[in-house]
C-alpha cells in the first residue's frame, strides 16, 4: 500500500511516522564534567565519564547513564543542551529526565534555521516572573488566538520520585487549532534544532552571592524530541541521502529536503502543503511530450480559474504554443498522427516559385498560391493555365 496515493492512484496527504528526532543525534552541552578529572567524573575514563552523548544514546545500556555538567560554583549558572535535528521536524513533544535534583528554572527554545536564530517554546519555573518575566501559564492554555511560549510552574514528578521536563506543543496551543488549516501552528511546531537551557539550580539560594554557593551540577538523561520529519504532507518517510543528510522521500511531484517545492516540470499550479482534504499534488505541465521544461504563469493560472498556469518552454519537434499543441510557422498538423507524435507537425514545403509565402494553413497544410497556381504546395498550374517563363507569375492563362 502506498500511503501517499489512493488505490486508484489519486494522490492523498501522507506524513512520516512519529519518531524521537534526537535519537542518536549529537548533543552540544555548554558544560560537561571531567575536564579536569575529579573523583566523580573523568572524561577520559569511560567508566567515570558523563558525556552529553549519553542523552541521546541509540540502543544499549550505557553505564554511567547520565550526562553531568561541570560543578557550578559561580554565576553564570546557565548550562545549555543543544540538539541539531539535521533537518526540519514538526514537533509533538520534548522531554528530559533529570538524574539528580532538577533545576528550578528551565527554558526550552527552538531554531528553524539550523541554529542561527532561536525563539522560546516554553519555560518551566517556580518563579516565572523573576526568571523569565512571564506570568504562569493559564490552566486552559494560551489566551491568544495562536500558540505562545508559556511558563509552566513546575516539572513533572515521576512515580520513582525523579523529575521530568515534559513539554507538549498541544499545551501551548489554543484548543481547536488545526495543523492543516493553521499556518501559525505549522510554523510553531517547525524546528531544526532544540535547545534546553538549565537556568537556575534548585539547591542554590541567592545566586548573586557566589561565596555562599554550594557546588552543584546538573545531571540528566533520555532527551527525547518527539516529532515527525517535516515533508508538508508529500512524503511518508525520510531517508538518508548520499551525503548522509536526512531528506523526505518526496511524492506528488514535489522535491527538496521538506518537499517544499514542485519538481521542475511539475509547475502547472503553485506548490501547496497537502491537507487531509486535498493532496495539492504538483501537476506536470501539459506539453504533449514535446517539451522538457515549463514555467508557471500566475496570470494564466488566474484566468483559467486556478486550474492551469504552466507554460511549456522550448517546444521541440516543430511544435509551438503554451502546451506545444500547435505547429510552428512553416509546419502543419498531420491529421494521421496523434498530437504527441514526434512527427505530428509536417513541413509546409511550399513551392519556391508557385507559392506566395512559406507559411501554410496549420490544419490543412495548404500553401498560399500565386494566381493561376494550384496544389497543396502550389506546385502546378491550375486548369486553363500554363507555365510561363516568369518566376513572378509562373502560370498564365492559356491563350
Amino acid at each position: 500500500a502506498d500511503p501517499c496515493h489512493e488505490e486508484g492512484g489519486a494522490p492523498r496527504a501522507c506524513v512520516p511516522g512519529l519518531v524521537n528526532a534526537a535519537l542518536g543525534r549529537e548533543v552540544l552541552a555548554s558544560s560537561t564534567c571531567g575536564q579536569p578529572p575529579t573523583q566523580a567524573c573523568d572524561s577520559s575514563d569511560p567508566r567515570r565519564a558523563h558525556p552529553a552523548a549519553l542523552l541521546t544514546l541509540a540502543g544499549g545500556t550505557a553505564s554511567p547513564v547520565c550526562w553531568r555538567s561541570d560543578l557550578l560554583t559561580q554565576a553564570p549558572l546557565n548550562v545549555s543542551l543543544t540538539v541539531p535535528l539535521g533537518k526540519t521536524f514538526e514537533l509533538v513533544f520534548v522531554s528530559l529526565r533529570f538524574c539528580s535534583t532538577p533545576p528550578t528554572s528551565v527554558a526550552l527554545l527552538k531554531s528553524q534555521d539550523h541554529g542561527r536564530s532561536w525563539v522560546p517554546l516554553g519555560f518551566f519555573s517556580s518563579c516565572c516572573g523573576l526568571d523569565y518575566g512571564r506570568l504562569p501559564a493559564p490552566a486552559n492554555g494560551p489566551a491568544g488566538p495562536g500558540p505562545e511560549a508559556l511558563c509552566f510552574p513546575e516539572l513533572q514528578t515521576q512515580p520513582d520520585g525523579g523529575s521530568l521536563l515534559a513539554f507538549s506543543v498541544q499545551d501551548s496551543s489554543p484548543p481547536g487549532l488545526d495543523l492543516d488549516s493553521s499556518p501559525v501552528l505549522q510554523d510553531w511546531v517547525t524546528a531544526t534544532d532544540i535547545r534546553i537551557v538549565l537556568t537556575r539550580p534548585a539547591m542554590l539560594g541567592d545566586t548573586s552571592d557566589s561565596e555562599a554557593m554550594v557546588p552543584y551540577s546538573y545531571s540528566a538523561a533520555e532527551l527525547q524530541v518527539g516529532g515527525r520529519c517535516k515533508c508538508n504532507g508529500h512524503a511518508s518517510r525520510c531517508l538518508l541521502d548520499t551525503q548522509g543528510h536526512l531528506i523526505c522521500d518526496c511524492r506528488h511531484g514535489t522535491e527538496g529536503p521538506d518537499c517544499g517545492r514542485c519538481k521542475p516540470f511539475y509547475c502547472d499550479r503553485p506548490w501547496q502543503r497537502a491537507t487531509a482534504r486535498e493532496a495539492h499534488a504538483c501537476l506536470a505541465c501539459s506539453c504533449n511530450g514535446h517539451a522538457r521544461r515549463c514555467r508557471f504563469n500566475m496570470e494564466l493560472y488566474r484566468l483559467s480559474g486556478r486550474r492551469s498556469g504552466g507554460v511549456c518552454l522550448n517546444c521541440r519537434h516543430n511544435t509551438a504554443g503554451r502546451h506545444c499543441h500547435y505547429c510552428r510557422e512553416g509546419f502543419y498538423r498531420d491529421p494521421g498522427r496523434a498530437p504527441n507524435d514526434r512527427r505530428a507537425c509536417r513541413a509546409c514545403d511550399c513551392h519556391p516559385v508557385g507559392a506566395a509565402g512559406k507559411t501554410c494553413n496549420q490544419t490543412t497544410g495548404q500553401c498560399p498560391c500565386k494566381d493561376g497556381v494550384t496544389g497543396l504546395t502550389c506546385n502546378r498550374c491550375a486548369p486553363g493555365f500554363q507555365q510561363s517563363r516568369s518566376p513572378v507569375a509562373p502560370c498564365v492563362k492559356t491563350p
Binding site: V353, G375, C381, S390, P391, V392, P394
Partner: peptide, 23 residues
C-alpha cells in the same frame, strides 16, 4: 485534369536573380 508540376528549368531568372531559390 492533372497538370504537370512546375518545371524550374523553364523559368528565366534574368531579371529576378535575387528571387532565385538556392539549388
Amino acid at each position: 485534369e492533372v497538370m504537370p508540376t512546375l518545371d524550374m528549368a523553364l523559368f528565366d531568372w534574368t531579371d529576378y536573380e535575387d528571387l532565385k531559390p538556392e539549388a
